[in-house]
Design a protein around this nucleic acid. Structure first.
Lengths: 359, 359
DNA sequence: ATATGCTATGGAAGCGTTTCCATAAGGGCG
DNA sequence: CGCCCTTATGGAAACGCTTCCATAGCATAT
């Protein structure tokens, strides 16, 4: 009773044939053998309840059928990390039918040595790097490694040679900013994302550039430092409330801070959008109950995860390293938190267009 | 350039000693050897950039230093599964310093055979079963397996011999129900949790039992079928709104449905708690922005995860199988969505106490 | 001088698979 | 009847590491 798991050798013995034969047949190479032999092996395996040891198989084949999902130390904690959840779902959806497993790898703090030991220890066929932050140790590691890798949710500088999958942060933010401008706003504030994230940088840059393209000034006291969280949005709203001269619209780098911003404003009697227009970014489903009317930009995280997994998989299967990136479109989601500024807020603006559009 | 990863053998060669010596030293058994030898081996390993292959090590030691986190098919998708997130955080917090990894295992649909193959293939030292549902194939599998296992978030029937870690669902719900009763409510409705979850069953049972203990009737048209989600709560609220005779309070099996219930009520002009008292369960942080005043019950998911990981770890290290369970306390979190029924709602209730208290 | 007990090290057999290559039997062909 | 080509099967090395056990050298006790 409760004896050890049967090994291939025992199956072979039971079937009365060699290890080779047994292994081949159990791997599905039925055509090599007589139907009778195949049946005998299969029957033996079944009756013994044989299940192959993936460790041994991995060692022999130099393939583990497992990928690593690497979390930065900064967001090791999944809590309040809606992003990781959705991406992970997409990853799993792609990988499940392929019988690949996912290993969660949280980067320990400490010397690069111990980090590398965790990343490159033979237990995975490749890594998905979850939104590597600016100056992440992952980038340095990557320079010494030949493991297939895909960066998810951070479009890294192309000279790193790391393939990336993310939405088009710059394009999305440009469209959103243009939309707000076209509603008639000329005084527009911005809530920045987490300072260590490439996406935050890109969204901010696109905002500034679009403003400049339309000949509008960005005033630094109207640029608030958010952190991609609800609470940071509330804090920024406080700053906005304390301002003597206020922008008539605020664009947030993400929905979480937008929701926080709005909630804090509402709590202080500021009506949205009558008194202030607010836009978000990501169209985050978990914010829907809280803020169902948010004008924002769609960010299909699930698809990002799915495509990233696929890209990694293809590298693994083909044995080729890719260096190109994929960016997904970011359609505008127009709801109700952005409206033309009311007469009391500012002069009705004349039509406007970019002075020069340079993509 | 970009040559293969160095193996132990190459380190041994470089250091000019045997495999055994090298292996021992790299595993930290320094006291076995002369300081000079130790230094030579360490230096060789460092200069070659040696990193042990965990697969090979696992095969030799019969230990992988990895645990499996098994998701039911039903909640394979992490999205909207706040529970899994928090638990996972706790798990990782415990495991990270121990250098254990976590593998995500999503049960495929299909024959038990393919499920078992995924669970028991030598790649993990034990499993954390994430909230196994009623009639889960995991339970049947468990009867044939000797792998260490802990059920997280489902207190399974003790005769299964599976150790469990969860909060005290029954105790928490009893306290909550008593509190609502003590506020003066006599007509109390209930929003059930997901029909396949043990916790939902236990919470419902405790509600019914407490009501009975206090001599109060539970009317079946006041028992609504929720699903542990925001939207299901809204649907239940619609049913409540359509009722001819309404309870003056509704207890929900979780915060998500409570928030949905409340939001739907508010949208229909029902004031909380003036017109209706609503209670939740879980004190879910993600619901705070949405519903900051919810009276509920604390559910420390992070701690559940932490303890479960610890329990599994101890089994693995000791080689012993445990069968006992841990239940965590569930303190009441009294906020503002439960208040005494107003005069218009019902007669002011006389004091009340349980007819007989049988724990 | 021999027995005893250390200390420092290495040989070799695993761990459970895969896979390269060899071999043996059988059949058609000249 | 000997040769070659198939078809069916097995031997053995390899994957990278751990560990049991043996051994050799040397100092101390008898």
């Amino acid at each position: 009773m409760a004896t050890r798991k049967p090994t291939l050798r025992e199956v072979a013995q039971a079937a009365g044939c060699s290890l080779t034969t047994t292994s081949n047949i159990l791997q599905g190479r039925h055509e090599l053998y007589r139907a009778e032999t195949v049946e005998r092996v299969l029957a033996a395996a079944r009756s013994l309840g044989y299940r192959p040891n993936m460790l041994a198989r991995g060692l022999a084949k130099q393939r583990t059928f497992t990928i690593g999902l690497v979390f930065e130390r900064a967001h090791a904690v999944l809590t309040q990390n809606d992003y990781a959840q959705h991406v992970l779902d997409g990853v799993i959806e792609f990988l499940l039918p392929l019988e690949y497993d996912v290993k969660l790898i949280t980067l320990p703090a400490g010397r690069p040595d111990s980090i590398w030991r965790r990343l490159e220890n033979g237990t995975v066929d490749g890594h998905l790097l979850l939104a590597p932050v600016i100056d992440s140790p992952l980038l340095e590691w990557r320079r010494h490694s030949r493991l297939p890798v895909v960066s998810v949710g951070s479009l890294l500088p192309p000279n790193l040679g790391i393939p990336c999958v993310d939405v088009d942060n710059e394009g999305g933010m440009r469209m959103l900013t243009e939309w707000v401008i076209q509603q008639g706003h000329r005084h527009i504030g911005f809530v920045k994302g987490h300072p260590l994230h490439w996406s935050a940088l890109q969204r901010e840059r696109a905002f500034r550039k679009t403003m400049a393209d339309y000949g509008l000034a960005t005033r630094e006291e109207w640029i608030f430092q958010g952190r991609y969280t609800f609470d940071s949005g509330r804090l920024c709203a406080r700053e906005w409330l304390a301002l003597r001269e206020r922008p008539t619209a605020v664009i947030c780098a993400d929905d979480g801070s937008a929701a926080g911003f709005i909630q804090e404003c509402l709590a202080h009697g500021v009506r949205i959008p009558e008194d202030l227009s607010v836009a978000g970014f990501d169209d985050e489903p978990t914010m829907h109950p809280l803020c169902p009317n948010l004008t924002t930009v769609r960010h299909d995280k699930h698809r990002v995860g799915y495509l990233a997994a696929q890209m990694l998989y293809e590298q693994i299967e083909s044995g080729t390293l890719r260096e190109d990136s994929i960016t997904l479109p970011t359609p505008l989601v127009i709801r109700k938190t952005v409206a033309p500024p009311s007469a009391g807020q500012a002069l009705v603006a004349p039509p406007i267009s970019p002075k020069e559009v340079q993509r």
